[in-house]
Design a protein around this nucleic acid. Structure first.
Lengths: 194, 194
DNA sequence: CGAAAATTTGACATGACTCAACTGGAGTGG
DNA sequence: CCACTCCAGTTGAGTCATGTCAAATTTTCG
């Protein structure tokens, strides 16, 4: 069955595994889709009408600021979710862009299907509640670091926290995630190597 | 009944109002409590074991960075929630402080009571899912501004978005929320008045 | 192998911070 | 209800962390 990774992920957050009808509800609504490296899942200005679970591959979520400079907000790899939640739920044009950084496979659900899950099966309200809570906790931690930490401290925190992303994502993209220029990140690293 | 404000707030996010037994579940678990101005709801290092709904008053959530400087993460007024979600759910010591900025009244629920609501009544998974999603959306917007906007743009954005907080919260606290020093905020404002 | 992309380097620029002094209310106690 | 303190806000001078720009170098990959 092609939805196993997702079903397993959902079950991890429940007291008892989903019942057959709930698994079926998932299988009926999530569509497998492939993205090639550099392909966009979502572009700023478009309406985001889907939520996306990463089965395999790697994505980045980024925004462009008023000067056109890009800022990476989030990376997602296997078992992660990528979505502009604001756009998905408020049905407003997206501020964000989502781009595949590798050839990738995902499972996607339409807004309508997602609402059917929420309304038909309480278990999905629980799962997505926990998911949103964790996303919020992570986003706050990120904000705390961006407000109070120096560029150097943010970089050290990143390599301690996400060592598995270091070989997978370019320095320039990591610099953007950390809120600094690639030049500055390079200079930071030079100092450590001494 | 003393829980009306909360019940009304919850109902706003549901298709149909709560049933009597659900209202009772709320009334049985949320305790009214008063805080005096400057009183702490939570101090960094403590375990946060409660979620707090603001009936009346005003609070700030802040962290201290490695240099001891404070950073305001969030303000909450009537119908807002304040909590260190990371500490509440992961049962880890809190990184955050929560302080009353005015004499205030709140409704508080213990972690245990909250879990009873989740497990006993699906409706609360829906309500707190939506709440967490909105908190995450707001947190991401805040991060986007802090990464890509100048201090001036962040200030202008704040007064456009939260005009009702301007007379209620001191400039120094707003400056900290916006990620700048009070001196710098003062200089920004001087330029506008010309 | 060669072109394009990623990373590094250095010189210079600047937005925002620090520190210290000053000003004007707002509480508080006598 | 005055005097005193204290906190919030303002100002200015000097500094620093990080950014900008442009060029050199290395790596990637078709």
């Amino acid at each position: 069955m092609t939805h196993q990774a997702l079903i397993k992920h959902i079950n991890q957050f429940l007291f008892q595994p989903m019942r057959a009808e709930e698994e079926k509800a998932v299988a009926d609504r999530f569509i497998r889709k492939a993205y090639r490296k550099r392909q966009y899942v979502l572009q700023a200005g478009d309406l985001s009408s889907r939520n996306t679970f990463v089965v395999e591959g790697c994505f980045r979520v980024f925004v462009a600021d008023p000067n056109g400079k890009e800022h990476n907000l989030q990376f997602a790899v296997e078992n992660g979710w990528i979505v502009d939640m604001g756009s998905l739920y408020k049905e407003e044009p997206s501020e964000m862009n989502i781009e595949a950084l590798e050839d990738s496979t995902v499972l996607q659900i339409e807004r309508k299907g997602l609402y059917e899950l929420y309304d038909g099966f309480p278990v999905f309200n629980r799962y997505f509640r926990i998911l949103a809570e964790n996303a919020y906790i992570a986003s706050q931690k990120r904000l705390i670091r961006s407000l109070g930490f120096t560029a150097e401290a943010r970089y050290l925190d990143f390599i301690a926290r996400y060592p598995h992303l270091l070989n997978r994502i370019s320095d320039a993209k990591i610099a953007s995630f950390l809120g600094m220029t690639p030049e500055f990140l390079s200079k930071l690293r030079r100092n450590f190597n001494k």
